[in-house]
């Protein structure tokens, strides 16, 4: 799938509803480094997402909300940015949301909040 940076996202997503990664609303996205030259060539929407990721690892939902781009379009654009190595999509340290090691860590963290 080629990502033409000049195509409007709504056109871009026309035939694409499926993404390759498991992009949950809480999947984290991050950037290794910021390439200003590459950023200048992106569509305005992709550029907003790319700029925002500089702040640190963020979820797909946060990126969508903060950049004012619908969730579906955000997913497709993030996939494209990941396939061109602009961004990394976290694979997650655990295979399942029910992995007991993950659950235990979250429970321990929440217990300390109280």
């Amino acid at each position: 799938m080629t990502a033409n940076p000049w195509v409007r996202p709504y056109v871009l997503t026309g035939g694409r509803t499926q993404t390759n990664h498991q992009l949950y609303v809480h999947t984290l996205v991050s950037a290794k480094h910021f390439d200003a030259r590459a950023a200048a060539k992106l569509s305005p929407e992709s550029r907003r997402l790319y700029d925002r990721v500089r702040l640190g690892p963020q979820s797909v939902a946060e990126l969508s909300a903060h950049c004012g781009i619908s969730l579906g379009v955000t997913r497709v654009l993030l996939e494209d940015l990941a396939s061109t190595e602009h961004l990394q999509i976290a694979e997650g340290a655990y295979d399942s949301p029910f992995d007991h090691r993950l659950l235990k860590r979250v429970i321990d963290g929440l217990s300390e909040l109280g």
Partner: peptide, 16 residues
């Protein structure tokens, strides 16, 4: 977490 050479920036995990 084991550090991975090809994904150095990303060791943060999220749960929901």
């Amino acid at each position: 977490f084991p550090s991975s050479a090809d994904r150095p920036a990303l060791t943060v995990t999220s749960a929901k």
